[in-house]
Design a protein around this nucleic acid. Sequence first.
DNA 1: TAAATAGATGACAAAAAAGTCATTTATTAA
DNA 2: TTAATAAATGACTTTTTTGTCATCTATTTA
Lengths: 144, 144
Amino acid sequence: MFSKTCEYAIRALILISQKSKNGCKTGIKEIAEAIDAPEPFIAKILHDLSRKGLVQSLKGPTGGFYLDKHSLQNSLADIVKAVDGDKIFYGCGLGLSYCSEKKPCPMHDKFVKVRKDIHEMLQSAKLGELQEQLEGKLAYLKQR
Amino acid sequence: MFSKTCEYAIRALILISQKSKNGCKTGIKEIAEAIDAPEPFIAKILHDLSRKGLVQSLKGPTGGFYLDKHSLQNSLADIVKAVDGDKIFYGCGLGLSYCSEKKPCPMHDKFVKVRKDIHEMLQSAKLGELQEQLEGKLAYLKQR
DNA sequence: TAAATAGATGACAAAAAAGTCATTTATTAA
DNA sequence: TTAATAAATGACTTTTTTGTCATCTATTTA
């Protein structure tokens, strides 16, 4: 459904949001370990996200990644759009560039509905809220 | 949502199903042209599909690809499973291998619902029926 | 202000997906 | 039975995605 890059990005931001609530910054090493991702790869991904303003960072000792108040409000839809683009929300399911209401592919209507559901699902999933599920042990990012 | 290979496969099979209803076989060249796909690539894809029994073919003059009665009953779900596997129906949205009811990721429940919808949508889309929409000019596989 | 820490940066490498090509094999019809 | 046709086959190339590495820069604290 999403690219690997996007999956890692989402998992990392959920984790960082958890730490940020306590006012903590999180280092690359800890993030990589906690979400089970290759350290250099997640470093690159977070760097990209920080340039896009989806995560904040500070260098030096006591430095690391964190989310400011605004970033905590971001939804998974915002992250997916930034990383994978919005093709998943609007593109034709059969890959036809011209496909539209006026010239629909045979699956057009059905795909429109499913994509709308996906969009709403991701839009309603805010980082700050997902994090609460981790806190309450209702959900996990790692096996243990 | 699907791989390019899978998109081409679906488009090709819908087209072939249309021709098959009239008892006609369709050649690679015509298929590639009609669904706007690279000829050698769709040739390889159809060959794979024929080995998996999702399409039938005959060599020689008057030969080509066609769908027998059984294959006409196949749904897009069958095609997607054969080409892309069933990760799209069952895998974790965040890419976590352990994710399950007992150890859910923070998005687990929401993804289960959306994936179920996708599965039902594809399962209910039979090649033989999609083809009727093309026939009635209610849908298109090409711009004109 | 020097040493240690931690992210920034860019070049590189490996793997997977997408696409191409030349040749072979099977079938049909003249 | 031979020539033409059309799919089968497998090797190859290109592009994209995924992942790695070495080095640089900024910040903090002793």
